[in-house]
Design a protein around this nucleic acid. Structure first.
Lengths: 134, 134
DNA sequence: TTAGAGTCTCCCCATTGGTGGAGAGTCAAG
DNA sequence: CTTGACTCTCCACCAATGGGGAGACTCTAA
């Protein structure tokens, strides 16, 4: 029979996450405690470790805590969240594509600008930097 | 002969920036006022318009206000800031390259993950999402 | 002179994912 | 029983770039 649950410090050392972060996750509802000790200490189930691993994994894939929470809500409703996770990851790819596109455009503009850069231009008028025409 | 300077609302409508933003820039030292009216109103020179255009331009190129301030400090010291701007823009390109690289790696990982995705996997053990092995 | 528009300073708010500390209470070993 | 480690709640703070509004003051045109 398993114990009544582990205290936050144990979960912290076993998961490798700071105590503060675990409290933060619990406050957000990402990581429900199974209850409190008589003295008011949070008690977590073994399952919390799997949950934290899940959170960590989705975080490294770029999902926000809110999106992760959505996936966990599906899981907590008793269903496999694979479909929702798939949707979120698809959206994440779209976001990334958009970001890459923007960054490439910006990079191109910078490149073009620097390609015609004059290191020592004539100081003309009141312009601050002639290379930028401003 | 130019007047004694324009008030912040005039500069706002002529530059297209909100009054709040102009005060913020002035607080940061990006946009020095030439002084104050007797009643304490900020007074700006015509040059402020060029300065704001310069700031706007570098901001759209992705430079932070702090970096822009560095360029303006060179300008205010009486030198052409082109060299410093060139350095900052070069750094910005490097930053962008790093970001694109990271985003591409992440995109690849997501892509690979979704490529082998099972929409309706067998529910095995205590795993939250078998596709993620967590 | 007076009304209304403009401006001042000061403080809080937003975003996201936490981190740090104060002061008080709890738990376990000796 | 005491001591030291652990935990609790609550509050403040960080990054960056402003936005919103209160309450007081100033300026301008009629």
């Amino acid at each position: 029979m398993a114990g009544v649950g582990m205290k936050i410090g144990v979960l912290a050392s076993r998961s490798g996450l700071p105590v503060k972060t675990l409290r933060y996750y619990e406050d957000l509802g990402l990581l429900p405690a199974i209850g409190r000790s008589e003295g008011g200490y949070r008690l977590f189930a073994e399952e919390s470790l799997r949950r934290l691993e899940f959170i960590r994994r989705l975080k490294t894939l770029g999902l926000s805590l809110e999106e992760i929470q959505g996936c966990l809500a599906v899981h907590d409703a008793g269903e496999l969240p694979c479909g929702d996770i798939q949707i979120q990851l698809g959206r994440q790819i779209e976001r990334i594509d958009g970001q890459i596109k923007e960054l490439r455009q910006l990079r191109q503009e910078l490149q073009d600008l620097l390609a015609g850069w004059q290191s020592d231009p004539a100081k003309e008028g009141d312009v601050i930097c002639p290379n930028l025409h401003v």
